[in-house]
Amino acid sequence: MIRIISIFVGLFFTASLLWSLTWDTIQLGKDGLPHTAAAAYGEHPKKLALASDGPFGKFDTAQLQRGFAVYQGVCASCHSLQHVSFGSLEALGYNPAEVKAIAAKATINAKDPLSGEMKDRPGLPADHFPPVVYAGKGAPPDLSLITKARHGGSAYIYSLLTGYEAEQPAALVKHFPDAKTPEGMYFNPYFGNLNIAMPAPITSDGQVTYNDGTAATKDQMAKDVSAFLVWTAEPELEKRHQVGVWWLGFLLFTTVLAYMAYRNVWAEKKGH
Rank of each mutant, 00 (worst) to 15 (best):
L81D: 01
E234C: 06
P141Q: 07
A97N: 10
T61V: 09
R3L: 12
V208L: 03
A76E: 05
A40C: 02
K270F: 00
A69R: 03
K223L: 05
E183H: 09
D178E: 15
A110I: 08
V74P: 01
I196K: 02
G32T: 11
K105H: 09
A49Y: 00
S204R: 14
S80A: 14
M185A: 07
Y41V: 04
V74D: 00
G73E: 04
K218Q: 14
S6Y: 00
T14E: 06
Y259L: 14
G136Q: 13
I196Q: 04
C78S: 00
S159Q: 10
T147H: 11
G206F: 07
P45V: 13
A39W: 09
F129A: 04
L145Y: 13
A62V: 11
N95Q: 12
V70M: 02
W246R: 15
A49W: 04
Q207C: 06
K269H: 11
A216Q: 04
V133M: 08
M198N: 11
Y158K: 03
A15W: 07
V230H: 02
T61A: 05
G10M: 12
D224K: 06
D212Q: 08
D219L: 14
K119D: 01
T203A: 03
R121Y: 03
W231D: 01
L89G: 07
L145E: 12
N195I: 12
P169L: 10
K47H: 13
Q27D: 13
L89Q: 07
N264Y: 15
T209G: 08
L64H: 02
S16E: 10
G153V: 08
L28F: 03
K223M: 10
Y164I: 09
A215T: 15
A139S: 14
F12S: 09
N188T: 09
G54H: 01
V256A: 01
C75L: 05
T209Q: 08
N109V: 15
P122F: 06
E43R: 12
A135F: 04
A97R: 07
G184S: 08
V133G: 04
Q72L: 01
F253L: 03
G271L: 13
Y210P: 02
Y190V: 11
G116Q: 05
F191I: 14
F12K: 00
D142V: 01
G87K: 09
L92D: 08
E165Q: 13
A267P: 06
L229V: 00
S154T: 15
T209S: 10
F59P: 03
D224H: 00
L252C: 02
Y134M: 10
G163D: 03
Y158M: 06
G271W: 02
R263M: 06
V74R: 04
Q27L: 15
L64C: 09
G32N: 08
G42S: 09
V265G: 00
G87A: 03
W266Y: 13
A222N: 01
A37V: 02
K270W: 04
L172Q: 08
P55Y: 00
T217F: 01
L145C: 05
P45Q: 10
E43F: 10
P130D: 10
R66P: 04
L237F: 10
K111L: 01
V245R: 15
S6I: 07
P122R: 05
S144A: 11
A215R: 14
G271R: 14
